[in-house]
Amino acid sequence: MRHKSFEGMNCPIALTLEEVGEWWSLLIIRDALHGLTRFDEFQQSLGISPNSLTRRLTELCAAGLLERRRYQDRPPRDEYLLTARGRDLQPVVEALAAWGRKHVTRKKGNVRLLDSATGAEADPVLVDRNTGRAVNLDDFRYVAMPTAHPVKRRRLPRD
């Protein structure tokens, strides 16, 4: 079932969900980050129907998150590789995984992100690129820009 379109909203979260909000999409991106590239690999990993997987892969390619590349002509077979735009979703995927390990699975999970140099398990946090400080609700605040929805302009301080 298709949700209403967020296309008209002036919100980066809503517009991002328009491209990757369908639940299989982020799982395909996750698997691509884990090195999976082929249709059968995605299908086996996810247990998704071939029709649904074809649709999702087509949409992710159209959104510029994956690139389809032919690796065999007879029979024709393609692989799906992350684009730079798709790789930029890694912090989002890692943040969801970290939240899930903390609040949902209680540290369970089959794949972990490790520091390549030390082998230590990574503990991802959102960091402000300008200051290097971890982003949290105590040290950072939201402000409403002039284009924000009126209800948010009433609730939040303005920039």
Rank of each mutant, 00 (worst) to 15 (best):
N51Q: 14
N51S: 15
S52Y: 01
S52L: 01
L53M: 02
L53P: 00
T54M: 05
T54A: 09
T54H: 08
R56C: 11
R56V: 12
L57E: 09
E59D: 13
E59Q: 15
L60H: 01
C61M: 06
A62I: 03
A62Y: 03
A63P: 02
A63M: 03
A63I: 04
L66I: 07
E67V: 12
E67H: 10
R68G: 03
R69L: 09
R70Y: 12
R70D: 08
R70G: 08
R70E: 15
Q72V: 01
R74L: 12
R77T: 07
R77V: 08
D78M: 09
E79A: 07
E79F: 06
Y80P: 04
Y80W: 13
L81T: 10
L82A: 02
L82E: 02
L82T: 02
T83D: 00
T83C: 00
T83G: 00
T83E: 02
A84C: 04
G86A: 05
G86H: 00
R87E: 14
R87K: 12
R87H: 09
D88H: 13
L89K: 12
P91F: 02
P91L: 05
V92C: 07
V93L: 10
E94L: 14
A95E: 11
A95M: 13
L96G: 08
A98W: 15
G100A: 15
R101S: 04
H103E: 13
H103P: 00
V104D: 09
V104T: 03
T105N: 06
R106N: 15
R106E: 14
R106D: 15
